[in-house]
């Protein structure tokens, strides 16, 4: 369990993290979401023990992380955002060094390093200098480093940044697999990633928590609008736009697509949580319009995110 209470951290005049409180349960994968500069990295750095907060508490596994920095670091694995590692070192030597610093017995080190190399798919890179690795492999070295001591808690700052789509899926699967047994906190500004991997999402904006819940909940919370997209073919001079506007509960209609003179796409907005489709269908039937397409638009996490993080 990780609990963060009233955490604040300023750099000069900038409040990077402003009174953040949240809790991560054991075995949960938590995603910190927010635009660049929202305070995600600072939050993770505070939990990992790299930075000290100005005020607030951090509790990791019932231990006060600020008073027991070293014992808490022992049970945390951390992957930092740019994943900077010693470019001169060979992958194997680097992981060996980490194994030593992580108190793995000398006799077991090589064995453990081998295991991690296999898990992270680094077999071909193990005898290379870290500086010569591709971005994806470097990221894997970072992950191997974070998991080497089999920590209870994994803190991953943008674990998939800079990877290609295949690698992203691999890393996501790896994180999901790990998340079954471990507590994972990861940050991202990619929404689909958080939706795909996390049990819970916290949206951070300007150093504050602006939303907290599982992705589904968050989507529901923000449904104060329904949208229906339809594509209609109607004869010339038929006033589709105007007619749609006269429907009950419709606030706004816009043309979003101009396929041809007859076929056009419309977006119908309503402020009520009402399904407009039956009304639209019967209207179209009455007027003799040909309905090419009609679907209700789901409010994505993306729009939740946008709404919450573009305010002020």
């Amino acid at each position: 369990m990780v609990r963060v209470e009233d955490l604040s951290k300023s750099f000069g005049l900038v409040k990077a993290v402003d009174n953040i409180t949240f809790e991560v349960k054991r075995g949960e994968i938590l995603g910190l979401l927010g635009p660049n500069g929202a305070g995600k990295t600072t939050t993770l750095r505070l939990i990992s023990g790299y930075l000290r907060p100005d005020s607030g508490n951090i509790v990791v596994a019932e231990k006060d992380a600020l008073a027991n920095t070293e014992p808490v670091r022992e049970i945390i694995g951390y992957l930092s955002e740019y994943n900077p590692i010693y470019h001169d070192m060979l992958v194997f030597d680097y992981l060996h060094y980490i194994a030593e610093m992580r108190d793995i017995l000398p006799a077991q080190r090589t064995q453990r390093v081998r295991e991690m190399v296999t898990t992270c798919g680094l077999k071909d890179a193990v005898a290379k200098k870290i500086g010569e690795l591709s971005k994806g492999n470097r990221q894997r070295v970072g992950l191997a480093q974070a998991m080497l001591h089999d920590p209870e808690y994994l803190i991953l700052d943008e674990p998939t940044a800079g990877l290609d789509p295949n690698q992203i899926i691999e890393i996501r699967d790896l994180i999901k697999r790990l998340g079954q047994k471990k507590t994972v906190i990861l940050s991202s500004h990619i929404l689909s990633e958080v939706e795909a991997t996390c049990d819970r999402v916290i949206i951070i904006h300007q150093g504050k928590v602006v939303a907290d819940g599982n992705p589904k909940e968050l989507q529901k919370q923000s449904v104060d609008e329904t949208r229906v997209y339809l594509k209609i073919a109607a004869g010339k001079g038929s006033q589709v736009l105007e007619t749609l506007k006269t429907l009950a509960n419709v606030n706004e209609v816009e043309i979003t697509e101009d396929e041809s003179q007859e076929i056009k796409g419309y977006l119908v907005h309503s402020n009520h949580d009402i399904d407009l489709r039956p009304d639209i269908f019967s209207l179209a039937q009455k007027k003799g319009w040909i309905l090419y397409e009609m679907h209700r638009e789901v409010v994505s996490l993306e729009s939740v995110f946008r709404r919450l993080t573009t305010a002020n």
Binding site: R45, S48, G49, Y50, E70, P71, R73, E74, I76, Y78, S80, Y82, P84, I85, Y86, H87, I98, M101, R102, D103, Q145
Partner: peptide
């Protein structure tokens, strides 16, 4: 290079 960050999350 920022490797200091990784260094200081090791238990030392």
């Amino acid at each position: 290079t920022g490797s200091y960050e990784m260094l200081m999350t090791l238990p030392l």
